[in-house]
């Protein structure tokens, strides 16, 4: 039975992905900021294992990696993010809010995957997909502001691209995927290739 790790599986789109893969007989490791809703936990059945995760905490990231030591992971899909403050002007950007968005949206997913490299190496499919936001694609910018959110997403894209360069030495593929329904995302993950991951555009 293949294994998939999904972050923020307590809510959509992570929950929809967890449901999709559990129904398809995958073992699901749900790495969540908040508990799965009870009904969802029951519906996902015995194939789900839930781990709590605080993306602002280095200790929490390390704890997840420690708990999963030695366990092969075939696919990881990272969905977690924190929204920005679209209306805040440049002169009023708050450094603490900026730091938290950088940690949650860019650093935490990167750090988690970096610490799980051995698990992913031991997996069969070796796909590390990041769900992200078309707003991070700079050429498409049409509206101003939301500085911290956009910076965090642009940084994330670059980290993921750089991760893809490093992981391909052992066959890892790190695509960035635009939001879609769970079946579509699963299809893209199943078809993920180094060439696809090499395309910077979502």
């Amino acid at each position: 039975m293949p294994t998939i790790l999904i972050t923020d599986a307590h809510r959509d789109p992570g929950l929809a992905l967890a449901t999709h893969y559990a129904n398809d007989d995958w073992e699901v490791i749900a790495v969540n900021r908040a508990p799965l809703p009870p009904a969802a936990f029951v519906a996902l059945g015995a194939n789900v294992r839930e781990l709590r995760f605080d993306p602002l905490s280095e200790a929490s990231v390390r704890d997840v990696a420690l708990r999963l030591r030695g366990r092969p992971i075939d696919v990881a899909i990272l969905t977690g993010e924190t929204a920005g403050e679209p209306g805040r002007p440049a002169e009023a950007v708050d450094p603490d809010h900026w730091r938290d968005l950088m940690l949650v949206n860019a650093w935490a997913p990167f750090r988690l995957i970096a610490l799980l490299e051995d698990n992913l190496k031991a997996g069969a499919q070796k796909v590390v997909a990041m769900l992200s936001d078309p707003e991070a694609y700079l050429a498409d910018y049409g509206t101003p502001r939301d500085y911290a959110y956009r910076a965090s997403k642009a940084s994330l894209h670059q980290l993921w691209r750089t991760l893809d360069m490093e992981f391909r030495a052992w066959g890892g593929v790190c695509p960035l995927l635009a939001p879609a329904d769970a079946a579509e995302i699963a299809a893209r993950v199943a078809a993920a290739t180094p060439d696809e991951a090499a395309r910077a555009r979502l």
Partner: peptide, 9 residues
């Protein structure tokens, strides 16, 4: 990359 996003915005 983050700087580019900031400046673009």
């Amino acid at each position: 990359s983050g700087l580019n996003a900031v400046w673009r915005s």
